[in-house]
């Protein structure tokens, strides 16, 4: 067990509904919830925004001072830190299955096979993927979107006439992410494994050994490491070298008899926050694996489902499947 603890630095929050995602909207900690609301959780002045009345938030991502949420009401909504709600799209009842956003205001979402890309001026483009889409990510450079689907992934330039560039690998691809230097694409798969491609030559890399599906992927600030959930430890793959993790073993941080369900690298140092299926939350330092406890596993607690650091890396927001949540203030 961890020698040190930051548990005293945690302000508990009661989200009252399963937490789908968390983000800092500017300085405001915010939680997107299974009951369709966004909770603005500045301690002492909590506010609930009905982003999806009578619906459920399925996916959500932070984008600058807005929380972009997608619901089972078929709507994509931007909830602001001031409590405002703006409807971005209405897919007529089709579930919003995946979402991506970045700070410049561009947003992408998918429902079924349809992927939509909306640039910061509101221009909308549509791409019909070969099969249902499970994951989306913006490439770090250019207006280009990575799309995870069945039998591979596609890289799409919404503003180009050329068809998307296909990266083939048999099976169902779920979450997708691109390395901060755009050299690698990585997906999690139905078969409890990861797949990665080197973008330049589409060289395949398989990363296996997971006991569950990987739901959470997070890059270190320097882009050298990819932290992943889905095993009894945070599995952290080295991507520094030209060949990425080929023929290299990953680091395993925080090995316990419980599965890691969510990971988030600190924005400035090689420290990863990792939540477990039993509600425990740890910080682990790379590469020596030193651990600090943030939250012990409460009795009957459920999995940590969302984690986010603020931009400075001074606060960590977390939420769980049971609606429990908290805000850690790092000691200065």
């Amino acid at each position: 067990m961890a020698a040190a603890s930051l548990a005293a630095q945690v302000t508990p929050l009661d989200a009252r509904a399963p937490v789908a995602a968390v983000a800092f909207l500017g300085q405001v900690p915010a939680l997107a919830l299974g009951d369709g609301t966004v909770l603005l959780a500045t301690p002492g002045t909590e506010r609930r925004i009905a982003a999806h009345p009578d619906g459920t938030i399925l996916v959500a991502v932070g984008s600058g001072d807005k929380f972009i949420t997608g619901g089972d009401d078929g709507r994509v909504v931007a909830a602001s830190q001031d409590g405002g709600v703006q409807e971005i799209a209405d897919e007529k009842g089709k579930w919003i299955d995946s979402l991506a956003a970045r700070g410049d205001g561009s947003i992408a979402w998918s429902s079924g096979k349809n992927v939509r890309a909306r640039d910061h001026d509101g221009g909308l483009k549509t791409f019909a993927a070969p099969s249902s889409v499970r994951g989306l990510a913006f490439m770090p450079k250019g207006f280009r979107i990575a799309i995870a689907h069945y039998d591979g992934a596609s890289l799409w330039f919404p503003n180009a006439a050329a068809p998307p560039d296909l990266f083939k690998w048999k099976g169902s691809h779920l979450a997708i992410t691109a390395s901060p230097d755009s050299r690698f694409l990585a997906t999690s798969m139905q078969e409890n494994s990861l797949h990665a491609w080197r973008v330049a030559d589409k060289k395949d890399m398989r990363m296996s050994g997971y006991t569950a599906k990987t739901r959470s992927l997070s890059w270190s600030f320097d882009g050298h490491w990819l932290a992943t959930s889905g095993a009894d430890a945070a599995v952290i793959w080295p991507f520094k070298d030209k060949d990425g993790p080929i023929n290299k073993a990953p680091l395993e941080c925080g090995v316990r008899g419980a599965k890691v369900t969510c990971v988030a690298f600190h924005p400035k140092t090689l420290v990863v926050a990792q939540g477990y299926e039993d509600g425990l939350l740890l910080l682990c330092r790379i590469p020596d694996g030193a651990e600090i406890l943030v939250r012990a596993a409460p009795k009957d607690a459920r999995a940590i489902t969302a984690l986010a650091w603020d931009h400075a890396g001074s606060r960590l927001l977390f939420g769980g499947a049971d609606g429990a949540a908290g805000l850690l203030a790092m000691p200065t």
Binding site: K113, Y150, K170, G171, S172, Q190
Partner: peptide, 12 residues
């Protein structure tokens, strides 16, 4: 809920 009967092979 609308579905689209997407059948795929497990990679096993």
């Amino acid at each position: 809920v609308g579905a689209d009967e997407e059948v795929f092979e497990m990679n096993n």
